[in-house]
Nucleic acid binder design. Structure first.
Lengths: 214, 214
DNA sequence: GCCCCATCTGGACGCTGACAAGTTGCCATC
DNA sequence: GATGGCAACTTGTCAGCGTCCAGATGGGGC
């Protein structure tokens, strides 16, 4: 079976084994399946089927279902880190940087629904996995440094850790309740603003609460 | 099999069928199991085993696994509604009322971890279930009326719906990320404040952002 | 006293994740 | 250039799962 039957996904390791680039293919298939059917509809065997390999192949690379899901969660944090860094780099105003960070966060959750569906499911993911921890912290770090800049500029005694937790919680909570909120609004012929706009608005409000107006 | 073998849980319907009060017993067993093993470790047959009935009994009352999980989610919103009403009733100051609401929310999520683990899992719950919708709105309504009072007192042009969504998102997000946050802090010998304190602090900050200081 | 029907049981089916044993094919070594 | 080792993958097996179905059970209305 030639390696070009399963072309490596962008940026992945070279295809050098029997199958090609199976770990990446499996991760992608898992993310697709999660996006389609949610965590409840996830199945290792369906992932294997979509990757065109036997049902036991994933175990060889990821140990078990939890291992594969953890790998997807790590990738979620990688996407998040990359998007956050791109969104906030070069933005001088810390408030503007935070607003863009919030928009980037929900954008990732919209563009990678499978990844983000699993990222915080501590019952299905090995939260003590070193890579999970490392990339979670790295994503958090981007937010943290933006808050630090805000503190330096506007409120030297700001509790940076707590403020960052507040921002993360708000935006994460928004991704959780936005769909139910829309469903409720639909029943009453109301509409809910786009999630990206809400994320920015929420963040500007939070900043006002944290360091005062102006 | 005498009905007193399975005493009815507090406030439930009288035991009048073969088994007694099976729907309530099953709901409670499901919530316990969810609290112990999370959504990923949930199993209809284990619930039936704990209730002392055959593996097919739950289907008769709840249709399928989704039906039982939906019933638990509805109960989560009922707890939430009751706790919210108790926490905010009789509190004149709307800011204080909101702070107590936030604390009540996370308290429910701590005291009923099984229920709250499933409440927003739209992949595992029938989110278009009428009861789910009704009780979700009812819980949201308590928050909404507290925000309305805040707007009347302090900011007549406040967007009440959006402000309520912001508060809910923040507190819900807090319940999602508090455990991971604690795990991260542990690795660095830091500590995270109790979730109830954070919920109150966050809410007071949000209020400042929404309607200004004072 | 009888029947009806909601309630619950036990068995069957296809699917699942995990494990064990065997097969394939690359690569280094002799 | 044959050989041995080893990672990658397959095949087979197992218990457990959710759901469907036919049948047993027992309380309430007639």
């Amino acid at each position: 079976m030639a390696s070009d039957t399963f072309p490596a996904v962008a940026g992945s390791a070279p295809a050098q084994y029997h199958h090609g680039d199976l770990p990446n293919v499996l991760r992608q298939a898992a993310a697709d399946l999660l996006a389609e059917r949610g965590v409840a509809g996830f199945s290792l065997r369906e992932v294997a089927r979509r990757a065109g390999v036997s049902h036991a192949a994933p175990a060889h690379h990821f140990g078990d279902a939890r291992g594969l899901l953890t790998a997807v969660a790590v990738e979620a944090f990688q996407y998040l880190t990359r998007a956050s860094e791109a969104a906030s780099s070069g933005i001088a105003d810390p408030v503007e940087a935070l607003a863009r960070l919030a928009r980037a966060y929900v954008t990732v959750s919209v563009e990678h629904p499978g990844h983000c569906a699993i990222a915080f499911r501590s019952d299905a993911v090995a939260v003590d996995d070193p890579a999970y921890h490392e990339w979670g912290q790295r994503a958090f770090g981007v937010l943290l440094s933006a808050i630090e800049r805000l503190g330096r500029d506007r409120a030297p005694d700001l509790d940076v850790e707590m403020a960052a937790a507040l921002c993360w919680a708000t935006v994460q909570g928004l991704t959780t309740i936005h769909a139910p909120l829309e469903a409720m609004a639909d029943r009453q012929d109301r509409t809910v603003p786009p999630i990206g706009d809400l994320a920015e608005d929420f963040t500007r409000l939070l900043v006002t609460g944290l360091v005062g107006p102006e």
